[in-house]
């Protein structure tokens, strides 16, 4: 059971910014009127961040990872979350053996 100081700093920072986003609404309520364009950009935040985080692993590691990412994306159009994870993991293990 260890608690690294730098890890704790990172966790506390994560907690602080997250709490800030959760209570910001108390101050903003009723005053937020986004244009459709700004709303679209706001809605795009989660997918943009998720893709930005995984792009090096999916696109800049090797062809087995890129292939498995494509298969996972295909699976994501019809399968639930955990099934997509299973497809991706099995695909990368298989393709790395080739």
């Amino acid at each position: 059971m260890t608690l690294d100081t730098l890890n704790l700093v990172a966790i506390l920072g994560m907690a602080a910014v997250t709490y800030l986003t959760r209570i910001a609404g108390l101050a903003l309520a009723g005053r937020l009127d986004l244009s459709p364009r700004a709303q679209a950009a706001f809605d795009a935040i989660p997918p943009a961040v998720l893709v930005a985080v995984i792009a090096p692993s999916a696109l800049a590691t090797g062809w087995p990872e890129t292939g498995a990412a494509l298969l996972a994306a295909l699976a994501a159009t019809r399968l639930p979350l955990l099934a997509v994870v299973a497809v991706g993991v099995l695909a990368v293990v298989g393709l790395r053996m080739v």
Binding site: V53, E65, G88
Partner: peptide, 21 residues
Amino acid sequence: NLGADFAFTALFIALVASFWK
């Protein structure tokens, strides 16, 4: 060895699909 390092990538791909508009 178990491909678990790729689980994130696959999970995030699935999450992106759930935000698809």
